[in-house]
Computed example of a mutant assay.
Amino acid sequence: MHAEPEINAFLKARRAALDPAGTGLPPGGTRRRVRGLRREEAARLAGISVEYYTRIEQGRGGNVSPEVLDSLARGLRLTVAEHGYLRNVAHRAAHGGAARRPVPEVPQVVRPGLRVVLDAMDGVAALVYGRAMDVLAWNRLGGQLGGDFARLPPEERNIARRMFLHPDAEATHPEAAQIRCEIVAVLRAEAGRTPDGERLCEVVGELRERSPEFARLWESQEVEEKAYGVKRVEHPEHGLLELHFQAMRLPPPDEELTLLLYAAEPDSPSQAALLALSGGTRPLADAVG
C-alpha cells in the first residue's frame, strides 16, 4: 500500500465527514463546492498554515511532529483509533511510503494455556482471532455461534470473509450491514499498523475484488476498533439471540491476538439458549495454530 495515497485519502475523507457548522468556524460567505471542510478550514482548526496542511495531506510534509499530528487530530475531531491511524500513515509518508511486496509472516499460534482458558469458559461464547481477523481458536459456544469453524478449512476461518462472502451472512446477522462497516474499519486500523502484512494484503485484496460492498466501504477510510456493544444472532434452533460482546487485544506475548467474548443478560431467553447450546454433546473445536 502507498503511504501517500493513504494519508491523502484519509485526511480528505475526514475533512469531508465534518459539518463546518459544528466546528465553531464562522459561516462562509460563498456557496460550498465540496462537502465538509476546505483545506484552509482544516488548517485553521489545527492551528497550522494552509501551505503546511496541504503538504501533509499530499504526503509531502516530511517528519511531522507528534504535536502537529495531535493538533490535526483535535481539529478534525478524530477518534482515538483514527488518531493512531493518522500517526501510522504520517510516519510512512515521512519515510518514503513506497509500495512494497507483502511481508511474509510466521503463522500465528495460540498458547495451550490460552486454549485451556477458552474451553473453561461456561455460558460465554469465546474466540481468538489474529491477523486480518483469522479465527485461530474458540470454545464450544464460540464455534457454534460462528458457524461451526471446525468444519471449515483454515483459510475460510475468517470473520471478514464470512461476513462478506458467505451466502448465509444476512440471515444469521440481522445487522449485517452495520457489522460489515465495523469489520472494514477494524481492517483499516490494522492496515495502519501493518500495511504490508502478507495475510492482511491477501484478505483485503480478495475482498476488494470479490465484494463490491467491501470495495466501497474500504474507500470510505473509516477507522475503528470497536471494543464492546450488542449484537443479534439468528440461531437455526434457538431463534434470535441478543448478546453483549467485548473485544480485547491481549497483552504480550499475545499482542497480535484479540479475544472476543459474547454473553447474554442474566435470566434472559438468550442466556437460556446459550446454556442449552453449552450443554450439547458436540466435542470442543480443535483450534488451529
Rank of each mutant, 00 (worst) to 15 (best):
A3D: 04
P5V: 10
F10R: 04
R15Y: 03
R15L: 06
L18I: 12
G22L: 12
L25C: 11
G28N: 11
G28K: 10
T30H: 13
R33H: 03
E40D: 15
R44E: 11
S49Q: 07
V50Q: 07
T54V: 14
I56Q: 03
E57M: 13
Q58H: 08
R60Y: 06
V64Y: 11
D70T: 14
L76R: 07
R77Y: 02
L78T: 05
A81G: 08
A81C: 12
G84E: 12
A93T: 02
G97Y: 01
R100E: 10
R101G: 04
P104R: 11
V106E: 03
P112S: 09
P112Q: 08
L114H: 01
V116H: 14
M121W: 13
D122C: 07
V124Q: 06
Y129S: 10
R131M: 01
R131W: 00
D134E: 05
V135T: 08
W138H: 02
G143H: 02
R151D: 11
L152W: 04
L152E: 01
R157P: 00
N158H: 06
L165W: 01
A169G: 11
A171N: 14
A171R: 15
A171M: 14
H173I: 05
E175T: 09
I183H: 02
I183N: 02
V184Y: 07
A185C: 04
A191M: 14
A191F: 06
D196R: 05
R199F: 00
L200G: 00
E202A: 15
V203P: 05
R216Y: 02
R216Q: 12
E224T: 09
G229D: 04
V230Y: 09
V233D: 00
E237I: 14
H238V: 01
L241T: 06
M248S: 14
L257F: 10
Y262L: 11
Y262Q: 04
A263T: 15
A264D: 03
E265Y: 09
E265V: 15
E265T: 15
P269F: 01
L274R: 04
A276F: 02
A276M: 01
G279D: 04
G280R: 13
P283I: 07
P283C: 09
A287Y: 00
